[in-house]
Design a protein around this nucleic acid. Structure first.
Lengths: 334, 334
DNA sequence: TTGTAGGCGTTATCAT
DNA sequence: ATGATAACGCCTACAA
């Protein structure tokens, strides 16, 4: 590999002058700068970041420990956002995956520290509580799409309650009066928060208990989650006769579309449908296109990096939880 | 940060002895090893990889330039596979995303070289030709899910032709006699290869041209691809009356299911359906569950890292193209 | 404006 | 079995 000294020799100056050019120090004679830049070009010199890192105190590296994030199709956007923001700020994101049978978070954190990461981001595949080991206190840490139920830690999560409130309000404002909510497994954080937002909106409209319904479409048996959307949806439509259905995620809506197609009910006309996730191409693929509340994963990823860089700079630890607003992608299903 | 010297002081030995312990050099007295390990534990010492890298010639870093890979839900599995394999081999994968309006591949390659990456993997979101700049010749390079149409370069791609051949053979063996193939945009590599595999199987069964049909379900207008599965499927079913339909991807099959539901045709009974991708939970979500040929993304990611590590070790450049076999996930749709 | 000396944390060499 | 000493490529401080 080409070193700074070889460039210096080629350009006929001392290596320090080359260093100045590389680091944009203005105190270099234009003529020398030209020569040096030419030499750099010719030799294909690239500064050795490792050597630089040894001498300087900052590594410009941010660790990202992703708890099955890249296993889940939608939440990869967190990584994309984080990557993009890191690039903008001149930082390098070093990503480590954490799978079922894979290294512990502690091992991955050690890896981060060996690379002298200035801070560490811990991201989860879906909004959930995560108890991080104490070792995470040793450097700035930001949690994305998760939070520590015991310790106060800087966190970025989607505002699920606002999301449910907003979409329910929009349904009510459009005149829907009997809404059924096909919620996810009630144990998960998002389901709880969305239920709260849903009921909050209903209260504002003074909708009575008999005029709305909440059902779960996920059965958990032995830790395995199975989906029962079709049977639940059929029953709900038969017995409760809703004029609109809010789905816990796009895949629930997708199954619902099949049920409605089968029953001859036209989405957007005979019955309104709304959903959460706005996952990839699924909403546009459906006919009519599904209105869905987008989870702001990309923004969350960006926010996480912004936050960690702030923490590294200020040294002041602000441990508040950022709830990122979710936007409704309005289409034709209600 | 704790240095090796601080550990040495604590343990009452020279820093070189500590270095030996850290690097598993057996020539250290057991008693001293104990003391040193204890000191390391107490101080929370983590070796500085940057400093190590300055001294050693190998960085154990592999660069991964992902061309919109993480934008595409399925192909992230390439990254997962690469990460996993890298971890197994004691390497660190440094991932850089390449988006539409983002840094050029050349810039990202420079980044890799600044980190002294031992080799670079270039991954694409879907099987396609990619012309890499000449600068990629300067170090071991492996292409995943893509290939260079001009230069011979080590590449890992899915065996689309075999995939189509296998699934078509399976359809024919099960007794289907009039197969319609709803293929993707014929300009893309996968579509061409699959068509070849499809026809190869038909020939082996001596199926005449009048007894199979190939249609495109993607319209490209001004560079934008739009899907016309529904209208094409309706026409094909009406006019050609196939007993089985092979879909270019799961999302095409998904749309087809709606058409079939609408027409009252029962999948797996009145008509067989097969597909490519085996994308996430979509195949299982459909009723009956969709049989689909899985793209071996995870394996390809692993293979890419294995390959680059070999190249780094052997210095002998083998530029052949690895075609990774695709497995059929058999379910109930045919 | 430029160059020299010293040091960052580690590994390699060669004594002891 | 252990420890000085040099070296890696770069940056900082200071001197010229």
């Amino acid at each position: 590999m080409v070193t700074i000294k070889q460039v210096a020799k080629r350009a006929g100056v001392s290596f320090k002058t080359v260093s100045r050019v590389v680091n944009n120090d203005p105190t270099v004679k234009a003529e020398n700068r030209e020569k040096i830049l030419a030499a750099i070009e010719e030799l294909g010199y690239q500064p050795n970041l490792a050597a630089r890192m040894v001498r300087k105190k900052n590594s410009d590296v941010i660790g990202f420990i992703s708890d099955e994030i890249s296993t889940t199709p939608s939440s990869v956007d967190i990584l994309r956002g984080a990557q993009d923001r890191a690039w903008e700020l001149g930082k390098t994101l070093m990503v480590f995956n954490l799978d079922h049978k894979k290294p512990t978070p502690i091992k991955l954190l050690e890896e981060c520290r060996q690379h002298r990461a200035e801070g560490v981001i811990y991201g989860a595949m879906y909004h959930q509580p995560v108890e991080l080991p104490e070792t995470f206190d040793k450097q700035p840490t930001v949690m994305v799409n998760c939070f520590d139920p015991n310790v106060e830690r800087a966190s970025i999560v989607p505002d699920d309650q606002q999301a449910a409130y907003d979409v329910t309000m929009q349904l009510l404002n459009k005149g829907y009066k009997r809404i059924a909510f096909l919620n996810l497994n009630p144990e998960i954080v998002a389901a709880k928060l969305r239920l709260a937002g849903f009921e909050q909106a209903l209260q504002e409209f003074n909708i009575e208990q008999s005029n709305y319904l909440v059902e779960t479409v996920e059965r958990v048996i032995d830790g395995h989650t199975s989906d029962v959307t079709r049977e639940v949806a059929e029953r709900v439509i038969e017995e409760f006769k809703p004029d609109a259905i809010l789905c816990g995620k796009d895949l629930v809506a997708l199954r619902l579309y099949f049920v409605l197609e089968h029953k001859g009910l036209r989405v957007g006309q005979d019955i309104g449908v709304a959903s959460f996730d706005d996952w990839d191409c699924i909403p546009q693929l459906l006919v009519p296109a599904l209105s869905s509340v987008a989870l702001p994963y990309y923004q969350m990823g960006r926010a996480a990096v912004s936050r960690i860089v702030e923490m590294v700079g200020d040294k002041q630890v602000s441990t508040h939880i950022d709830r990122v607003k979710c936007q409704i992608s309005s289409r034709e299903s209600f």
